[in-house]
Write a protein that binds this DNA or RNA. Structure first.
Lengths: 99, 99
DNA sequence: TAGGCATATCGGGAAAAGTCGATATATCTT
DNA sequence: AAGATATATCGACTTTTCCCGATATGCCTA
């Protein structure tokens, strides 16, 4: 758990927004509903909603993953990303006790 | 409370270290003991310990203050900085519930 | 195996952050 | 008023981040 890397990943409005959307996929990504959300949301959906290019969104998701804030699952041609709540809990604790 | 500004301020090893030092001034800044720590620690002490130039440390402290993570008090020719624990508590909560 | 999607990676230009040395400002002492 | 000390600000340079378009890779289907 690299603190600086986590905080850097969180230092961007769009990335914060993506994390927020992923808290409630049913609400924010209804188009994907038929496929379920067990593995999270695929890049294309996030790309559309974010209004940035596909490459930028892909890079953002990779950086969130490197920080441990999301996990990814490949399924066919899709990559699904979902929040890694453990990291959020650990971070909240860290701020309370260590930082 | 600007989340992005807070996370940017926390995205630097030295600034994290400064915040950590300020948790226990008696331990980390014994040279200043005679003056007490009610208002925190003065810039010069932090500068010496950080091993970066005075201007850099001054700028770091300003950025921590803009983020609300520390407060400053001027007393004579010294400026004392101390942690603003309210912001840390609020941030920890924010991560648990909102982000 | 060719073509079509979905995603990742690469190269680059603009903006921001990191860091310094020099200088300005404020305060204290004499 | 002058000099000394503490801090802040400025100008510059380097590194990193932001974000894009173009291209590569991987997988699926006809």
């Amino acid at each position: 758990m690299d603190q600086v890397e986590i905080f850097k990943a969180l230092s961007n409005k769009t990335r914060l927004q993506i994390l927020n959307w992923l808290k409630d996929p049913e609400l924010h990504f209804p188009e994907q509903k038929e496929n379920g959300f067990e593995n999270g949301v695929c890049v294309g959906q996030i790309h559309q909603k974010a209004g940035l290019t596909q490459s930028t969104v892909s890079e953002y998701l990779t950086s969130l993953q490197r920080a441990g804030l999301v996990t990814s699952t490949r399924a066919g041609q899709w990559t699904y990303y979902k929040r890694n709540e453990e990291t959020f809990a650990a971070l909240s604790q860290l701020i309370q006790s260590e930082i």
